[in-house]
Simulated scan of single mutants.
Amino acid sequence: MGIEDFTYEEYGGEVGDIYYVLKLREWKEYSAKRISLPAPTVKVAVVAPVARSGSPPKPQTKTHTVVAGDSLWAIAKKYYNDGSQYPKIYEANKDTIDKRNKGTGNPKYTIYPGQVFNIP
């Protein structure tokens, strides 16, 4: 807190009465603050291919269950080592993401804990 302006006045009639006006300014620190979040728990299910006679094995499908604090960027960073690849995950799971966001007014990339995404 700091004093921005200080004035005083004396009025006739009452001897010794002095009227003060103080204008105060509140100072707030606007620097960035560092916070630490707990490491998210990630569940990954890997489906092993089943070998059938005469047919090639199917490629493995990775899934990711969203936990609090996850973002598409963080998930892409985890699986591709490049967060900017998040549109791949969005496109592969667009129906799931858009269905949950419908009517909420949230941005289209908003995800929620418990959602299970396929990782292409």
Rank of each mutant, 00 (worst) to 15 (best):
V66E: 07
P38M: 04
T7E: 14
I119K: 15
P120I: 15
K28R: 02
A51H: 03
E10H: 10
A76C: 12
A39I: 11
P107D: 10
D5A: 15
S84A: 07
T104D: 01
K102W: 02
D82Y: 03
Y112H: 01
S36Y: 06
A74N: 15
W27Q: 05
H64C: 08
S31N: 12
W27K: 04
Q60T: 12
T110V: 00
H64K: 15
T7I: 07
E91T: 14
R52L: 00
P56S: 06
K23N: 07
A92T: 08
P49N: 04
N81P: 01
K62T: 14
R25F: 03
Q60V: 10
N106H: 02
V47N: 14
R52Y: 00
Q115G: 01
G13T: 06
P49D: 06
G54R: 00
I111S: 04
Y19G: 05
V47Y: 04
K23M: 06
Q85M: 15
M1H: 06
N118V: 11
A39M: 14
A48N: 11
A74M: 13
K78Y: 11
Y79G: 15
D17T: 13
T65H: 03
P40N: 09
Y90G: 08
D82P: 00
K28A: 00
P56T: 02
P38D: 03
T65E: 05
V15H: 11
R52N: 01
Y19T: 12
I119Q: 08
P38I: 03
K62D: 10
T7M: 07
S71P: 14
P59H: 09
A48D: 13
I75M: 10
G13Q: 05
K108I: 07
V46D: 04
E10L: 13
W27G: 04
R52I: 00
P40F: 15
N106Q: 03
V44W: 13
Y11V: 13
D70Q: 14
V44K: 08
G13I: 04
Y30Q: 04
F6Y: 08
Y8M: 02
G2K: 05
S71V: 09
T61S: 11
P120N: 15
V21I: 10
I97E: 07
Y109H: 15
L22V: 10
K62Y: 15
R100W: 04
K62R: 11
A68S: 11
I119A: 09
W27N: 08
P57L: 03
A76L: 11
D5P: 10
A76G: 12
T104I: 01
I119F: 12
K28D: 00
A68T: 12
Y79N: 13
Y79W: 06
M1F: 12
T65R: 08
P57A: 03
P113K: 00
Q60N: 13
L72H: 13
Q85I: 12
I97P: 09
P56Q: 03
K62W: 10
G103Q: 03
D98F: 09
P120F: 09
Y109I: 15
Y20W: 05
D17A: 15
Y112Q: 00
I111H: 02
D70T: 07
D95K: 08
G103M: 04
V46C: 04
K99Y: 06
I75F: 14
V47W: 03
K102R: 07
G105M: 04
H64N: 13
I75W: 09
T110M: 00
Y20P: 06
G13M: 06
L24H: 05
